[in-house]
Amino acid sequence: MSCKKLIFLVLGALFVFVSASFASSGGYVVGEGDVLRITVYDHPDLETKVRVNGEGQILMPLLGHVDVAGLTVSQISKKLAKMLADGYLVDPQVNVFIEEYGSKKAVILGMVKNPGLYELSGPTTLLELISKAGGLSKDAGNKVTIKRIDPDGKKKVINIDLKALMEGGDISLNIQIKDGDNVYVSKAGMVYVTGEVKEPDAYKIDEGTTVIKAIALAGGFTGKAAKGKIKIIRMVNGKKKVLKNVPLDTAVLPEDVIVVPESFF
């Protein structure tokens, strides 16, 4: 197992625990489609399981329809207790649990194995959503873009550095995904290394990758390589440009072709 995959699994497990704790603490905001299980201590006849309808209401014994849209689990508990105490029960103790999540969804596209629309089963972090989508594909880059519409209608774009999160361990970047978010995992930049290298092929690169690093990814030079005559073939404004005799510390760009010619002497 690669170090990157191991870090992904560890961070994912950590945030599953944190999210579960958050949900159980009553911080989850319910919405249409969620199924709630409601119990009242010492009153089993009032126990019920109910789905939040399109109007953001639930049907509760004795109380009828109750508005719960925009409320957290703990707020619903307090609201129901107050309503039951108003002429029905003495000091009622109400507990509300999420039986089934079904109200919130997000889209994840790009370089994941199973892109698509996913239900957010309670508080869901970025890594958990990526996990739901089958994990990153082999061509995944280091940038994630999240497009979000705030409650006031304003559009927001959030950029996440996956490398800093997964390899650097910056867990502050593992943000909560919200209902309606559109998440896009970028494709990695690729460079092509050919000629007198041991393993000519296409390789993923990071920002700032140099010629010598790209050649190292390709296994290094062969014994026939003309190390001082390396060329880069690059597309500039739709036209092919050839850079000759490039230094080994030259930064490469996505889609560059690095050519290591053969030495004839």
Rank of each mutant, 00 (worst) to 15 (best):
M60L: 14
G189E: 07
D86Y: 08
K224R: 13
L173C: 04
G238L: 12
K5N: 07
S172D: 07
N159E: 11
V29K: 04
A23M: 01
A225P: 11
T72L: 02
E262L: 07
V66G: 08
G219E: 03
Y88V: 10
I108C: 10
A133D: 11
V252S: 08
S2Q: 07
E255A: 13
P44C: 02
G169E: 09
K244L: 14
N95K: 09
K224D: 10
G56K: 02
N142R: 10
P200D: 13
L248Y: 00
C3K: 11
Y101C: 07
K227A: 03
E32S: 08
V94N: 10
E255T: 15
I58S: 07
M190H: 06
V90Q: 14
N53V: 08
C3H: 04
N237M: 07
A140I: 12
N53P: 08
A23H: 04
K239R: 14
D91P: 01
V236Y: 05
V236A: 02
A140R: 09
Y184K: 09
A133Y: 07
G122W: 04
M83Y: 09
A23I: 12
A225R: 07
I76N: 14
D201M: 13
A164R: 15
I175S: 04
A20M: 07
G238W: 13
E255W: 12
A164I: 03
Q93R: 15
V193D: 01
V260N: 06
D249A: 07
T48H: 12
I171L: 09
T222R: 05
L46I: 09
T222Q: 06
D150C: 00
N174W: 00
K49N: 08
N53Q: 06
M1G: 15
K154I: 04
V193R: 10
T72I: 09
G135R: 05
P92V: 13
D91S: 14
V35W: 00
A214V: 10
L84I: 09
S21F: 01
V29N: 04
M1W: 06
K105A: 09
D161C: 06
E99P: 05
D206F: 15
K231I: 03
L80D: 03
A81G: 13
K104C: 11
G33T: 13
A13L: 11
S263T: 15
K227D: 00
P200L: 07
K156Y: 05
A188W: 03
V68F: 11
V197E: 03
K241W: 08
E119Q: 13
E100V: 14
A106E: 02
I230E: 05
I160L: 02
D67G: 10
G56P: 08
K224V: 12
A81V: 03
I7T: 11
G54S: 14
K138E: 05
F97Y: 12
S21P: 02
D256W: 05
T209A: 14
T250Q: 12
D139M: 15
K163P: 00
K241I: 04
R148M: 14
F97D: 11
E255G: 01
D179I: 03
K143W: 05
F97S: 03
E167V: 15
Y184G: 04
I233G: 02
R37Q: 12
G26W: 09
E55S: 11
A81C: 08
I130P: 04
H43K: 12
N159S: 10
E207D: 15
A214G: 08
K239G: 01
N237K: 15
S25Y: 08
A81R: 10
A218W: 02
N142A: 11
L165S: 06
